[in-house]
Design a protein around this nucleic acid. Structure first.
Lengths: 226, 226
DNA sequence: ACAAAAGTGTTCTGTCTACACCCATGC
DNA sequence: GCATGGGTGTAGACAGAACACTTTTGT
């Protein structure tokens, strides 16, 4: 039986591209690096796998350490093994995207980060570690995920308006959607159901609130979601 | 600057689920293990990343070593980091699926494999290393890839008939397709074009041969392919 | 002439698109 | 009453589903 110790061993890092949605805009959480390499540069949060952790555990730990985010939807989208990404040497990087209702959480810079903030998803600064390709892939993966599965709701509060949902799709896919056609389509999806109450405290006509019902979704089975 | 040597280091393996298509059936290439662990069991071909290889390079090297396959379409679909897959200890496993016209290549068992053969994709034996979950994910990834991108052609010879293409879709998605509707749909895709010649040497009416034109596909841009 | 697979059209139904105005609320 | 965003219907175009017979070749 071959021994694992005889094999090449590699440092493994886990990065998480965290998407949020606030003020009608798709956002991404980036941290400003406190340490070398790339001190002072903006980067996708992440860090080294340690001990017996799985990649998912590393992702959650690093997010908590660097941004204060917790209890967040995570999904793996690619593993990078090319050279030249980290000047200290080659790493294997498992990349995740994450989704969160960013109105609810503000980012807290801790540990390795000197700052952490939400950036507009279509105006990100140049990233450390040549993460620009990773970010582009994350956006693609986000679009695919939201087109094929009911994940848009992870970016919204539990109770949301149809206008919020529509604006979210418009942001994610960078398109304009006709309101009437959109609402007709949503009406057919009976897992998006009315809370039978309205917004309050606004200076205009209040909208009906809706919620996503995951149990009802399971009955419903279509190839494409949006 | 932190040093990479201070970090936890992990053995990395790369596995490739190779799909083929022959005799009107979707197939998968498996190897019979020559060595412990799981000696004599069937497994997805793969092995350890070595030295400065990227994951793609490892995948190609292992495929050549274990099955004799070369020059094959490869695409990453998931990275597994859970415990309990290898009795020797925890590994990080980057998984690929691969596509090949399996009529053209016969498998050759070499190195770590005592045998290598094409199995019907819907009748695979129990797999070593708890790879059953990996195989299920690979099938899902294959379906997604073929639904959204023109990859079916990787499984066919350069020149193919529409009946072959239809049967391939039927196999991959486990559905029946109406011939007339299928052909009408294909007719609209002008990147699937006639070679203006027919099959020869058959004992029945010969079919027109078609080919995939990737240059024309690039013009054509639809969200879903099939 | 027969066996075997190739190839072909029409109708119906449901979904997508385009498009403009009235409604409810706070101030 | 006005500013702000919420909410609604219809007609035409297009795409997907259902369905059965004729054609071409080799033997």
């Amino acid at each position: 039986m071959t021994r694992l110790e005889d094999k090449s061993l590699y440092p493994v890092t886990v990065d998480s591209v965290v998407f949020g949605y606030a003020e009608g805009e798709l956002k991404v959480a980036l941290i400003e690096r406190k340490m070398d390499p790339y001190v002072g540069k903006w980067a996708i949060p992440g860090g080294f796998m340690e001990g017996e952790e799985t990649a998912e555990e590393t992702a959650m730990r690093e997010l908590l350490e660097e941004t204060g985010l917790e209890d967040i939807y995570l999904e793996q989208f690619h593993t990078f093994s090319s050279h030249g990404r980290d000047p200290r040497g080659r790493t294997i990087t498992v990349a995740f995207f994450a989704l969160i209702d960013s109105e609810k959480y503000h980012l807290v810079a801790t540990a390795d980060a000197s700052d952490a903030k939400w950036w507009p998803a279509y105006q990100v600064p140049p990233l450390a570690f040549h993460q620009d390709e990773m970010y582009a892939k994350a956006l693609e993966a986000l679009r695919l995920a939201i087109r094929t599965r009911p994940l848009a709701f992870e970016l919204l509060p539990k109770e949301f308006t149809l206008t919020q949902l529509q604006k979210l799709y418009e942001q994610v896919f960078n398109i304009e959607i006709d309101t009437r056609n959109f609402r007709r389509k949503v009406a057919k999806m009976d897992f998006i159901c009315s809370c039978e109450k309205k917004q309050t405290g606004l200076k205009h006509r209040p909208a009906m609130l809706y919620r996503y019902d995951s149990a009802r979704y399971k009955e419903f089975s279509k190839e494409n979601f949006f």
